[in-house]
Deep mutational scan, measured.
Amino acid sequence: MQRVNMIMAESPGLITICLLGYLLSAECTVFLDHENANKILNRPKRYNSGKLEEFVQGNLERECMEEKCSFEEAREVFENTERTTEFWKQYVDGDQCESNPCLNGGSCKDDINSYECWCPFGFEGKNCELDVTCNIKNGRCEQFCKNSADNKVVCSCTEGYRLAENQKSCEPAVPFPCGRVSVSQTSKLTRAETVFPDVDYVNSTEAETILDNITQSTQSFNDFTRVVGGEDAKPGQFPWQVVLNGKVDAFCGGSIVNEKWIVTAAHCVETGVKITVVAGEHNIEETEHTEQKRNVIRIIPHHNYNAAINKYNHDIALLELDEPLVLNSYVTPICIADKEYTNIFLKFGSGYVSGWGRVFHKGRSALVLQYLRVPLVDRATCLRSTKFTIYNNMFCAGFHEGGRDSCQGDSGGPHVTEVEGTSFLTGIISWGEECAMKGKYGIYTKVSRYVNWIKEKTKLT
């Protein structure tokens, strides 16, 4: 034993070699072989497995989906700052455009905790909710729209109204504003409101030439003092309507412009014939205590009207009353817009006519005020429907199939267009061939041609 100890002390290297040989010859039971080890760690190889990531292109799944990435790591994937920024906006807080917040056709661009709407022409605001041009839906104005110097929408209202708090709607500024039905039992019968379409306001006024200088022999019209197929109006439903009495009662109609003036057809009036105007009328054979009678003290036909040349060209006249009318729910003026808007309103496509005229061709006159909704007829169809001249200051309205029309005794009465609950004068009943005849239409004086003249002559002093 002493000898062994001496050998170990003198030859430590020998001992180490012996131990190493023993270990190498022993069977290893701690580690699995290569094949079995792979069965336990069965993990798919990654895209760049075996390579240094710093030297390969980034992978979106590896960089940002398996674990949260930084902007720089995302930049490695896209290799483009702009594309990385677009991805980053949604990656950080989701897609803010998912709810489609942009209105009126706006395009949404996502941002971090926010979004941006790219608005089409005519709109602005956070969600493109603000109209900035009158060309689109009248700028959301209830009545009139004008573009300011910086191309912003400025709404306005006709006389007797003021802008509401929203700067879009119009509200009454006087007790009985024009064009409004205020009798409670008839307010439910107000005709369907007309909503502004998209309009090209630059070209809204037709490029028409008034044929002022045409000389033409007097034409022989049949029954051209021209509501057939209409309905009984309720008291106060058309408070701007008046009836004219002269040699015979209810020979023509008219509309209240203001307390002192009536507008009617020029062919209705004769110099030297006494005319009485009755406002607030409903049943011409009954006294309903809503009527107001006034005498006409002055007749002003349009300066281009000449019955000797043509009885229905420039067929418009103004009547001055001896005493002002007292405005109330049964006696209310009709609204008159400017030339541009009167023309736009007419193009809405349908209007209402009213009167006490004959209820059928050569038949009896109506006792109760009649009204009828009539569609506008395109000019080409209008011209083809008659052998008589249709001037540019006239328009056609009615039904091709016949059966409904204005008729004798309705002449001078109103053709009105309702705009968001307020009625505007767009025409004056003038003439036609018979009444409600198939293929024939009622012919009306186009008020847009005469609004400046009306307003100039009827100013209240």
Rank of each mutant, 00 (worst) to 15 (best):
N5P: 09
M6N: 10
I7E: 11
A9Q: 12
L14I: 12
T16Q: 08
C18R: 03
C18F: 14
T29W: 06
T29E: 13
T29L: 14
V30N: 15
L32A: 15
N42G: 06
R43N: 14
K45T: 08
K45Q: 15
S49G: 14
E53V: 09
E54K: 10
Q57R: 13
G58W: 04
E67P: 04
C69Q: 03
F71E: 15
E76F: 15
E86C: 04
F87W: 15
K89S: 12
K89P: 15
Q90D: 11
E98S: 11
C102I: 00
C102Q: 00
L103F: 06
G106W: 00
G106E: 00
C108H: 00
K109L: 07
I112E: 08
P120K: 07
C128S: 00
N135I: 05
N138T: 03
N138V: 03
A149P: 11
K152N: 09
C157N: 00
T158F: 03
A164R: 09
Q167K: 05
C170N: 00
E171D: 10
P177M: 01
C178W: 02
R180D: 02
S184F: 13
T186P: 10
D200N: 09
V202H: 07
D212N: 10
D212K: 09
N213S: 11
S217V: 11
F221N: 09
F224A: 14
T225S: 08
K234H: 13
P235W: 07
P239T: 02
P239H: 01
V242I: 05
L244E: 01
G246A: 09
D249M: 10
A250E: 07
F251Y: 10
G254F: 01
K260E: 03
T264I: 03
K274G: 11
A279C: 03
G280R: 02
G280I: 01
I284A: 08
I297L: 10
I299P: 02
H302P: 02
N304S: 13
N306R: 10
I309V: 14
N310I: 02
Y312T: 03
A317S: 04
A317P: 01
L318E: 00
E320W: 01
P324M: 04
Y330C: 03
T332I: 08
T332G: 04
T342N: 03
I344Q: 08
I344A: 14
I344H: 11
F345G: 00
K347R: 14
K347C: 03
F348H: 07
G351Y: 02
S354R: 10
F360I: 15
V368C: 05
L369R: 15
R373E: 07
V374P: 04
V377I: 14
D378Y: 03
S385Q: 12
T386H: 10
F388G: 07
Y391F: 14
E401W: 14
G402E: 15
S406T: 13
S406K: 13
P414G: 12
G421S: 06
G421W: 02
L425P: 01
I429C: 07
S430C: 05
W431N: 13
G432C: 10
C435T: 04
A436G: 14
G442Q: 14
I443A: 05
T445V: 11
K446H: 05
V447P: 03
S448C: 03
R449A: 15
E456M: 12
